[in-house]
Design a protein around this nucleic acid. Structure first.
Length: 775
DNA sequence: ACGGCTGATACT
DNA sequence: TAGTATCAG
């Protein structure tokens, strides 16, 4: 077969496709699209199925996963073909989808924190020591000077001497993005009020406003409104010709008439809603954002970036063809990388419009059936990706790079950094548990490395994972084991065996730990603690993973593995790097006194090490317990409505400078956190948390942890009924804040000794979660 | 082997 | 499943 690599010489005519699609299209009974040559994707879908799509995508897509996907190319002859997006059917062409994008978000967060920066050219940098640090966000005033992201701070200064460079917060020797995540949560909690909301990144969301728009159209159509909102009138309507003077009137006209097209009217309603939402975001958070309103995610995303900052753009269906015709192919969401390059290089496609020349079959032949169809679709503005109702991240990670001379060459240094990363991760996991009642089940370690002596090997450092046990010390221990497992594989048994390798053969240039497979703990039956059984034992799979040669980990399952592994990698101080534990010698190039090393040094020195509990108190969860109690995947994200209150991070209440955090209902964890003395049936969850008390950041968590001091481990078997507590210290009002199911549970626990409360209302909980009140 | 860090997804 | 790869910003 040569189709894959050869140039295309003959195509079926576009007309052929159109007629085919349009034929099928008739079944879906829509009108205006025809004139544009667009088709309902369902028709396209059917069509592509005819071309021997392997699985039935109708069932798969309607009932299964949603969202953009990727798939790897089937044919890899000729030029390498990268992982590629996958096509989804477009269920409806009349959805109202918005993409909301915060304007230079980090900068805005910093400007809110420090209002004197408002109006000034500003950028956020991390690690300012080397060449002024790397810019990760640039305000619009600075952009006017030509400052670009991914400049170094020094270059930015050259272009814009007045620029204000704000440093990203540093904790544990690394950048800490918590403040931005939390700020993003504020925004999400507002934007999720009008329809299904997908948190696409720290500063972007998608909204499905179809229902809201339909409702508005039915009850309060724009033409019935005495006045269109001022903000909505500032919308940019693609395809609406604006020439100067009466722009506002033209837009008003569009809103009122909406081209007499129902789909346009729906968009108009969507635009009104989005305008309101954006104003609310501004009022509540002081953040501006930009938005795109269209019939699908792809177009909405495209539009949100077209008029920034603080503006919104509507994409009527009638404007799509023109819009895409001249749009650089690389600007499309999934085409900014290798696939886009392949299109350019291999097919000579430079604009989305260029894609139109290629038949679906040809695209499929070249890029596979799924991606081929996907490309065919996006060329026509068709995108069936659904807005996923998800307000919370699916994973947490903490990582750091060690470029150049900073590369880590000793296990002890790797361990120290892993400890920092794990510490941060643990803190975030606890917060997630606390706020959202979610637990992560998998811990993964990623590393990047290069070999010193061995030039031919370009091997990548393998990622390793194991089941995640809660508690800082546990995570640290497991992460280190994972690292050892990876390293062993990386250097190869051959080298490991020769213990006399007096030389470091490897250098670590990046480390990250992440927690994934996060599930909501179902409230009910025996509640949270049920999921934290039996994790005394170390991860069985860690042993597996590391058995391959060399000394196996002790099966007794304590932390002996560390020692064993260390034995395999003789520590030498041959290298320039940091020395031993506790005393850190920053390894600095002549040009860079990297701040992160300094910070790290300070923190490391100040850090009390000894996890003062044995493993037996560590918090973990048993897989089978969990899986037996969790339903299918569809259960994993229950009760969205409530989650908006409960599961979100801090939600801004007032527009004043003083910001209040919405407590939401207390989680059961928080509930227990207020108790002075409880006895737990098994591993005391909370005690482990104390270990992180030494961490520099996370005041509120620290407080939680402190309050948990009194909790003592009970027996080590698994009966939740065995819990006892002091009910006289339970505040009924706190109890009332719990989700109903949990309330029942707690009340059941309280049964034996129900008494009046003593704890003052709000005293125990509120202040734990107040945000750091600065500026 | 410097843009750092974080997250999502798909496939094998 | 664990692990890899791609993409985004």
């Amino acid at each position: 077969m040569d189709e894959g690599s050869k140039k295309f010489t003959a195509f079926s005519t576009p007309q052929g496709h159109y007629s085919l699609k349009c034929h099928a299209y008739g079944a879906s009974a829509k009108g205006p699209l025809l004139s544009l040559g667009f088709v309902a994707s369902f028709a396209n879908f059917v069509h592509s199925r005819d071309r021997k799509t392997k699985r039935s995508r109708i069932e798969g897509d309607c009932g299964g996963k949603r969202g953009a996907g990727f798939h790897s190319s089937p044919e890899t002859r000729g030029t390498e073909i990268p992982k590629m997006p996958v096509a989804r059917p477009e269920i409806s062409d009349s959805r109202v989808i918005a993409h909301v994008d915060m304007d230079c978000f980090y900068v805005q967060v910093e400007q809110r924190k420090q209002p004197s920066l408002r109006g000034q050219p500003t950028a956020v940098v991390q690690y300012n020591s080397w060449k002024g640090g790397g810019l990760i966000a640039v305000g619009y005033e600075a952009r006017a000077y030509g400052v670009k992201r991914s400049m170094r701070g020094d270059e930015a200064k050259k272009v814009c001497p007045a620029i204000q460079l704000v440093q990203v917060p540093v904790g544990r020797g690394k950048a800490d993005l918590t403040v931005y995540r939390d700020a993003g949560s504020e925004v999400v909690s507002i934007l999720s009020s009008k329809g299904r909301c997908e948190r696409a990144s720290i500063d972007e969301v998608y909204l499905d406003l179809t229902e809201a728009a339909e409702t508005m159209l039915a009850e309060n159509p724009p033409e019935s409104l005495e006045a269109i909102g001022e903000e909505a009138l500032k919308s940019h309507i693609l395809g609406l010709h604006l020439d100067g003077a009466d722009n506002r009137d033209r837009v008003r006209e569009w809103f009122l008439m909406s081209n007499a097209d129902r789909r346009d009217k729906l968009l108009a309603c969507g635009a009104l809603i989005v305008a309101e939402l954006r104003l609310e975001v501004l009022k509540e958070t002081e953040f501006t954002c930009s938005a795109g309103i269209a019939h699908n995610k792809m177009l909405a995303k495209l539009a949100s970036g077209m008029n920034k900052p603080a503006q919104q753009t509507v994409v009527p269906s009638s404007s799509v063809k023109e819009l895409l015709k001249s749009l650089a192919i690389k600007k499309m969401k999934q085409l900014g990388g290798k696939l886009g390059t392949s299109l350019q290089v291999d097919l000579g496609v430079n604009t989305v419009g260029d894609l139109l020349q290629f038949s679906e079959e040809k695209l499929q032949d070249r890029y596979g059936i799924n991606t081929g169809t996907w490309l065919w679709n996006i060329a026509r503005g068709i995108c069936g990706d659904e807005v996923e109702g998800r307000l919370l991240p699916k994973s947490h990670g903490s990582g750091k790079t060690f470029p150049g001379r900073q590369a880590l060459k000793k296990i002890s240094t790797v361990q120290k950094w892993l400890n920092e990363l794990c510490s941060e991760l643990s803190e975030r996991l606890l917060r997630d548990l606390e706020q959202n009642k979610r637990i992560a089940r998998t811990l993964t370690l990623h590393a990047s490395a290069y070999k010193l002596n061995d030039s031919e090997s370009v091997k990548k450092f393998p990622s390793k994972s194991c089941s995640l046990r809660y508690g800082i010390a546990k995570i640290q221990e497991d992460a280190l084991n994972l690292f050892h497992a990876g390293l062993r594989e990386y250097v190869g048994v051959y080298h490991v065996r020769m213990k006399e390798t007096k030389q470091h053969e490897w250098a670590i240039t990046g480390l990250s730990v992440s927690a994934s497979k996060i599930v909501v703990i179902p409230s009910g039956t025996n509640s949270i603690m049920k999921y934290f059984h039996h994790q005394n034992q170390t991860c069985a799979e860690l042993n597996d993973v590391c058995t391959q040669d060399a000394a196996p980990f002790s099966s007794s399952g304590t932390r002996s593995s560390v020692g064993l592994n260390l034995a395999n990698y003789p520590e030498n101080d041959v290298f320039e790097e940091e020395t031993r534990f506790g005393s850190v010698v920053p390894c600095l190039g002549p040009d860079g006194d990297e701040i992160e090393d300094d910070v790290y040094t300070n923190e490391a020195v100040g850090k009390k090490d000894p996890p003062f509990f044995g493993e037996e108190q560590s918090l973990g969860l048993q897989e089978d317990t969990l899986s037996s109690c969790l339903g299918s995947e569809t259960d994993l994200e229950p009760k969205l409505a409530q989650s908006k209150m409960d599961f979100l991070g801090p939600r801004l209440q007032s527009e004043k400078k003083k910001r209040k955090v919405e407590k939401g209902s207390s989680s059961i964890l928080r509930f227990f956190g207020t108790q002075d003395s409880c006895s737990f049936p098994e591993h005391a969850i909370l005690k482990t948390f104390q270990e992180s008390g030494a961490s520099s950041s996370g005041k509120s968590l620290q407080k939680i942890q402190q309050t948990m001091t009194g909790i003592t481990p009970g027996m080590c078997n698994s009966r939740t009924d065995a819990w006892s507590y002091k009910s006289d210290e339970i505040d009924p009002s706190v109890l009332n804040e719990l989700p109903p199911e949990v309330q029942a549970e707690v009340r059941a626990w309280m049964q034996p000794q129900k008494r009046a409360n003593i704890v003052k209302k709000g005293s125990s909980i509120d202040h734990y979660f107040s945000p750091t009140t600065n500026s």
